[in-house]
Design a protein around this nucleic acid. Structure first.
Lengths: 328, 328
DNA sequence: CTGAAAGCGCTAACAA
DNA sequence: TTGTTAGCGCTTTCAG
């Protein structure tokens, strides 16, 4: 691989001039520019980012932190992040932490090491203390999951309100016994969605019963299956279920189908509107988050943060998508 | 952010000694080592990868090329790649090309620019000519999709055999009119799976009818829905369907459910065993690929390739997973 | 065992 | 307009 020296030599100019051509500086005559370009082509030269980055101490790479790409919820967000990044001449480094602190550390170090210029975290399991520490010296934006009262700017939706509306929809359909399938309440979104669930029930003076609230360890389909099975074993079964994620809701639907002799169908509402949610039987009623937009805006915010501008957090609108799982 | 200079100064040693401590060189006395460590802690120092990488001219980053992370097929493979990379002290750069050549170019340049040390491509839409060009000077491994008769090492499964077995299973169940839902035949896997489909039909002297072979533009659920709808409109309808991917098969199942008055159920077999394939109704019979292993091995192969060792291509075993969609 | 110094590939300030 | 040169942060050779 040729370097800038060799190009300079080949073209009979200095390295500075080559650099100027590379960076489209105006102060180069057409003639020298051509000489240099010819040399570049001849030697099949590609400038080394390594050298450039070291010199400018920037990498034009954005680190995107997420727990696992197997959760389809992140797909569209990443799409938005990707497109917005490219528009800003950045690339993204997708980093799965798998909720493992060691991995998180590796990625945080990459930022400290200047291998990435900023971070967008979508990881609810992230170590907030360390992230706050990092945010002191590096641009960081939270996407979807955030810290209440924290200092890091975020883009998200109003989970409490969305959950409230989802449950209210179930109530309007005549359900009085409504269960909640939630994940670990160490996550803010789980606490908020539970709060929305409870607010709706209280407003209609419906019972909030502990046995109708099930907490799963993870967000896999299987966790939803298991949760629904438990709910179906109760003496007094719920007539409807609100799950805090589509993956859980889809698992719940599966468990319901397996149960052949139910007197009345149990209504199910999910959260996220992942692409599968339209492929289940019955199709899933769910809350749709503006995922693409969320990702896109997160990058915008990060760019502003890099310019040391003041960045305001953003709360986006959601939408209730009514499908068959609440009307079968 | 402190640099190595400042640590040297603080510890009262030379930068060389600091570097030695950083790299666990043996030739440093306990006493100096401690002095240096103390300075490192005091100043909260993190060595810059940028400097190190430039010096060693390596980035310890692997570029992973895939068309889109929204296809769940890649999830487990990536998991394998990730774990294997970390075990080898590398990190991965997940790059979605979205089948766009511009993006591909950006990523190829990162490799040429020494921002990544090697490439694992899982992208069937990749520009093979450019990839071959890149492979002359950089380590490249193909994962899943590969080039017949090409020079780049690959890890994959025997798609033709798997398809043959899938279709044979349908034949054994008594089906004689078997349709194929495939994607674009510019992709090798589509050609191979079609070949397996035809081999099985021929072996049992069953008709291969063009109208029973449907090619979709993409691999989204919706493409499967549409394909199945077309097949259901035929005068002579197939009694079974083999789809070259689970996403297509799941869409097909959806279209079947929508069709209420079918005299006999139509059997469906998919390909990939994505996690959702167990959540559909009916659950999907499919070919399971050893995805995790495939990803893991791809990294091993890349590591060997980096050491300039000769790397042999690998063909892994698959498995037919029989579920409800072939016995309802 | 430790230090001085060269150099990885590039950019940018300064000089010409 | 172009060239010279310092230096980004680190590793490594060679001397001591």
């Amino acid at each position: 691989m040729a370097n800038i020296q060799q190009i300079a030599q080949e073209a009979g100019v200095s390295v500075a001039t080559v650099s100027r051509v590379l960076n489209n500086a105006t102060s180069v005559t057409q003639k020298t520019r051509l000489k240099v370009k010819r040399a570049i082509n001849e030697l099949n030269y590609e400038p080394s980012m390594l050298g450039r980055n070291l010199r400018k101490s920037e990498s034009r790479l954005i680190l995107v932190l997420l727990p696992s790409i197997s959760n389809p919820f992140y797909n569209e967000i990443i799409n938005g992040i990707q497109n917005s990044s490219i528009a800003n001449n950045y690339n993204i480094l997708l980093c799965e932490t798998d909720s493992k602190p060691e991995r998180e550390n590796i990625y945080f170090n990459m930022v400290k090491n200047k291998l990435a210029d900023g971070v967008i975290s979508m990881d609810p399991t992230v170590n907030m203390q360390k992230l706050n520490e990092l945010a002191k010296n590096h641009p960081v934006i939270l996407c979807s999951e955030y810290e209440e009262g924290g200092t890091i700017p975020y883009v998200t939706i109003d989970s409490e309100l969305a959950a409230y509306q989802a449950v209210k929809h179930l109530i309007r359909l005549g359900n009085e016994k409504i269960a909640l399938i939630s994940s670990d309440e160490k996550f803010l979104y789980a606490r908020l969605r539970r709060a929305g669930y409870e607010r709706a029930l209280k407003e209609f003076q419906l019972p909030i019963r502990d046995e109708w609230i099930y907490h799963t360890k993870e967000l896999e389909f299987q966790n939803g299956v298991q949760a629904m099975r438990m709910l179906l074993q109760l003496e007094e079964k719920p007539t409807a279920v609100f799950a805090v994620s589509d993956t859980l809701a889809i698992g719940a639907l599966k468990a319901l189908k397996a149960e052949s002799e139910l007197p009345n169908p149990i209504a199910v509402v999910g959260f996220d509107n992942i692409s599968f949610s339209n492929m289940t039987y019955p199709t899933l009623t769910t809350i749709s988050q503006p995922m693409y937009k969320m990702g896109y805006l997160a990058v915008d915010m990060l760019m502003n943060s890099m310019k040391d501008e003041k960045v305001e957090s953003i709360v986006l609108d959601h939408e209730l998508i009514i499908r068959d799982s609440t009307m079968w």
